[in-house]
Each structure stands twice: as C-alpha cells, then as structure tokens.
Amino acid sequence: MAKDRPKTLPPTMRENKRYLAFELISEEKLEFGDIVNAFWHSLLNLVGETGTSQANIWFVKDMWEESNQRGLIKCDNNYVEYVRAALALIDRIGDKRVIIYTLGVSGTMKAAKRKFFGERTLEDFETESSNT
C-alpha cells in the first residue's frame, strides 16, 4: 500500500542545502525558542517573505547545545550570506544584549557535527588509533 506522503525526490531535484553552525554570546544564557523567534523576525525583516521562503530555513533542534549556546541552521546554499547577515542583525533578544556569529558552514549535517560540535564517529577513533 502506498504511503500517505510524496516519495523522496531524486538527488538532482533536491534543494542544495548548507548547514550553518552558530554561537551566541549574551549577558545570560538563552533558550532555543527565543533565538528561533528572533532569527525569523530578523530574516523576515531583511529579505521579506519571498526571500525567506526561498531560503528554506530549518533550525535543527537536536543540535542546540544550551551549555555553550551553539546551534545549527539549515538553509539554501544561495542564502547563506543572508542568513549570516540576519544573524548579525540580531542585537537584542528580549531585554538581553546578544551577539550571534557563525562558526562555519558545512554541506552535510555529519560534517557540521564533527567540525563544530566535536562529535566523533567510530571511524575517527579508528584513524586516531592507527596514527598513534
């Protein structure tokens, strides 16, 4: 029986995405929801509704690290600079002053986790142990 959802698109038809890892500096630690709201507000102000729709924004909730205030945003590869600019244009969340800056950009979530969130796979351990 067919599933009640469209099939996964062929690779050439899928969006070209990038993952932006960001870090937040603020007076106090902030919650994920506040940052998401502030970002949407900033991006909508900067590029409008059409631009935001093309940017294909997705916040990866599982990757939010409250302890060091780091998170991951998925976006279209043509909108990376707009996303950076929108992050830079957030100066306040609630009544707290903030600076948000990107740690870097990655093409896959796997690479982003490894580069910016210190995640190590079994392969990493194997290569490290073979080197030593």
């Binding site: 950076r84 600019a85 992050l87 830079a88 100066d91 002053r97 903030v98 600076i99 800056y101 990107t102």
Partner: peptide, 8 residues
C-alpha cells in the same frame, strides 16, 4: 555588544 564577527 555592537561588535560583530568580521565574517558577518
């Protein structure tokens, strides 16, 4: 708080 990362 007005400072920004150079890449931004």
């Amino acid at each position: 708080w007005d400072m920004r990362d150079p890449r931004e």
